[in-house]
Amino acid sequence: MKVIHDLKYVRDGEVVLFKKSPNRFWQCRFKLPNSKWHRCSTKHIHFDYAVKVATEIYDESRFLHKYNLPLQSKKFKHVAELAIREMEKELDMGIGKIVYHTYISSIRTHLIPFFAKKSVDKITQLDLLNFKANQTRKLNRPLKTSTLTNYNSSLNRIFDTAISRGWMSKSQVPPLSNKGVKGERRPAFSVDEWKVIIRQLKTWQNMGQKTITRDMRELLRDYVLILTNTGMRYGTESQNIKWKHINWFMDKDSNRYLMIAVDGKTGRRELIARHNVLVYLKRIQSRFDDLNTMTFDELLEAKLDVYVFRLRNGLQTNNLNQSFEQFLKFVGLLKDKFGDNRTLYSLRHTYATMTLMRGQVGIHDLARQMGTSVVMIEKHYSHLNSAMKAKSFS
């Protein structure tokens, strides 16, 4: 048991020095204007040296407090690992965003190796420029805006963690820039490529040797088909959909359309699914005994607080993008004609392209359907101006 003894007072009693046996070093404590006590070791055995160190710490702490600067500093690696643990905890609790997986990967693979030994409150704009140059050398090409945006989001998560614990102030966060190479077009699939995907998804599903593999591919098949027939974003926006978010919408002519409420990057919105989505949702419903006792209409009317995209064991998975990458390699469609890798996000761009090619839906309606801006639609799909007529979303 540690016992406090040899109390000494300096600076008119503002700074207290003491020892805690069996520790031989002098400790100090003092109270700042915010009425909070601060304690630290002087790391000195001799009292005169301890007084000098304690008063210097006290004066520096008062200065930092006056200008709203942190009293403690932490290495970037320590804060980054703490930020990762917090995101992993939120994911385990079911309240974390799917994009956290991307942040965690970015922090571990790129940010920690570069900034590890740097104090988090000492990172400057020059350090960020050096990091950008280092990544450019590694990739042997200019960084894309989307890549820099991901780095910035990951860094902001780390800075927020440091600020919340008093290890840095908001004024110490360096300006973050995402000026990179902008892609003129985003990887998508042509009509012929999409036909190959539709045909091969079922074949690939049945080729799985293990039950868990077949279940993953079974879910991936319907996930891919639904994404491409709704235009919703993969990840948080689609993975968080529950059966209670799906309803029938009836127009003035009594035509029914499936309407899905999503909440993601741009907030909450309701989108209209193409008619064939009904087939895919019924197929998902049929995998679960508790859902299969109802008709589809009864299922929607029940407003169940249950996730739609689940494996047969009832659990969600974060591995659909990796599984889709394996499938694309299997069918030889991983890269587009420009050499860029395609991902689940490419299905959203495929939806936009095919919708614009179909007929009478303009870019304003498409922007609302997809939860994006007209500017973004024009920016990425301007090459379709000659075919900007679409018949319908369904």
Rank of each mutant, 00 (worst) to 15 (best):
R24E: 06
F338S: 07
N255K: 13
L333A: 12
N313L: 00
I4W: 04
S392C: 07
R221M: 10
K31L: 09
G94I: 05
L32C: 06
V277K: 01
T211F: 05
E193V: 09
Y223H: 03
L201G: 00
P175V: 13
H46Q: 09
S382H: 14
V16Q: 12
M207S: 12
H349E: 01
N321G: 07
F249R: 12
W26D: 05
D251Y: 06
S254D: 11
F288Y: 14
I4A: 07
S146E: 10
Q27H: 14
M259L: 06
I226P: 00
L300A: 11
I226C: 01
Q316A: 03
E184G: 13
T145L: 03
M370I: 00
N247Y: 09
M1A: 13
H46V: 15
D59V: 15
I112H: 06
T317H: 01
A162Q: 06
D289R: 13
N318K: 08
K52N: 07
Y103C: 01
T55S: 05
W167Q: 04
Q239S: 08
L128E: 02
N152H: 09
I104D: 08
H101S: 07
N319P: 01
W248N: 08
L225T: 04
A116T: 04
Q316D: 02
L356T: 07
T55M: 12
V173K: 15
F25C: 08
K210L: 04
M168L: 14
K89C: 05
V191N: 06
Q27C: 11
K329W: 07
S190M: 02
N318C: 05
I158W: 05
H38M: 05
M354F: 14
R39K: 11
P174M: 06
N318T: 13
V16E: 15
S346D: 06
R310C: 04
F288Q: 01
L129A: 12
V361H: 03
L111K: 07
T203A: 08
T211I: 15
N23V: 12
D6M: 05
L71V: 04
F25W: 14
F327I: 14
I45L: 12
I107R: 03
S382Y: 11
L334A: 08
R256D: 10
E218I: 00
I45S: 11
T293Q: 05
V262G: 02
R11V: 14
P142K: 14
C40Q: 09
K182C: 03
H78T: 14
N318H: 12
R137C: 06
D336Q: 11
A116P: 01
L366N: 04
Q172V: 10
F330Q: 06
T145V: 13
G362M: 06
I363R: 09
Q239F: 01
S61Q: 04
F338N: 11
T228H: 00
D305W: 05
R62I: 09
I197S: 01
N229E: 03
P142Q: 10
R310A: 02
N276H: 08
T147R: 14
